[in-house]
Design a protein around this nucleic acid. Structure first.
Lengths: 186, 186
DNA sequence: ATTAATATGTAGACCGATCTGTTATTCACA
DNA sequence: TGTGAATAACAGATCGGTCTACATATTAAT
């Protein structure tokens, strides 16, 4: 695959991710994807012969990897788990607010829409959440936390839930309140 | 409005709620709504002249009221906040699993899809979450909890996040893990 | 070095299906 | 007989997906 091809492929994935994050699987029409990416319709099916499901699946996976890496970088600088979670909540809050409450979690909406419908997409979402859970669990275990597995899932649920409430209220207040209470879990 | 009219109106709202819960706003096509409810297409616009947004809005509000009442009943029987939250998580877990991972939170998916797009629907979701937060806060305050406002939002975020992860993994493990760690917050 | 041949990618018209919403007509009960 | 409600045909737009023609690279042969 040449340089040019790889580039439009990436533009398609980025545009899809953006639209998915705002309106989920059904909210991301392929017409909007090609319009936003600048790529023609034919190129979409050249790079993603599996159609919309492949496009969305790779897009979610890519976004999951990106966020995972960002969290890993934050984790290196954070002295303990508590400041790490606070940092993540702060980062996500900034991203959410500056995007006009559009950019929350790129996985959540698709996960909810597809939980009972599409097996391939459900698996992608499950794997992404699993990787985040694992990274968090490892960090907690390394810090000597007494209950790393349960606590990792609990913290992830807390972050996702706070992000959901923040979008629902169009306010970072839920994120701030959760940040204030996070220490009780760690 | 006569008896018959009220009945089909209710059937339309119930069918909409079911489809919304499974696939969100975009996942609930009006063709599916009329097919599931048995009502003809024209009746839909007779009872809901505001179209899909009115139908979905009233459906979300109705579902929010129902769940709020169910929680209130559970709260009367629960000796403390901890057993109340555990009861809610258990109830939601049962509902989720027996529905084949379809019925989670009837508000969440719509809230995420519409956070940045539709002002009326965003407000409905915000109000429903607000009412749940308020009920939880009052209970915590009545129990003499030191930090009812922050804790209420945190607990709601935790429940919503756990429900999201459970649907994403098609497993009640996240709900169980969160249940085990909830006491740290209360 | 130049040209032919092949693979890679672009481009957009087009298809049937489905989407939300409208309309005119008929039904049924008071 | 008059009004609340049911009914289904219909309209325009958009959906995901397919198709063929064209342009641009890359490779190979002369």
């Amino acid at each position: 695959m040449g340089r040019k091809g790889e580039e439009t492929r990436g533009r398609l994935l980025d545009a899809t991710r953006d639209l998915i994050e705002t309106g989920g699987y059904f909210g991301a029409g392929l017409n909007q994807v090609v319009a936003a990416s600048g790529a023609p319709r034919g190129s979409l099916y050249f790079h993603f012969p599996g159609g919309k499901d492949q496009l969305v699946g790779e897009s979610v996976r890519r976004a999951g990897r990106e966020i995972g890496e960002a969290v890993r970088e934050l984790a290196e600088a954070a002295p303990d788990a508590e400041s790490l979670v606070a940092g993540v909540l702060g980062l996500l809050g900034d991203r959410l607010e500056t995007s006009g409450w559009r950019k929350g979690c790129p996985v959540a909406t698709v996960a909810l829409e597809m939980a009972a419908t599409s097996d391939p997409l459900h698996e992608v979402c499950s794997e992404v959440y699993g990787s985040w859970e694992g990274a968090l669990r490892d960090r907690l275990a390394a810090d000597g936390h007494p209950d790393p597995a349960d606590t990792a899932v609990t913290v992830l649920a807390l972050v996702e839930g706070a992000l959901l409430l923040a979008r629902a209220h169009r306010s970072r207040e839920p994120l701030d309140r959760v940040t204030r209470r996070i220490s009780a879990l760690l």
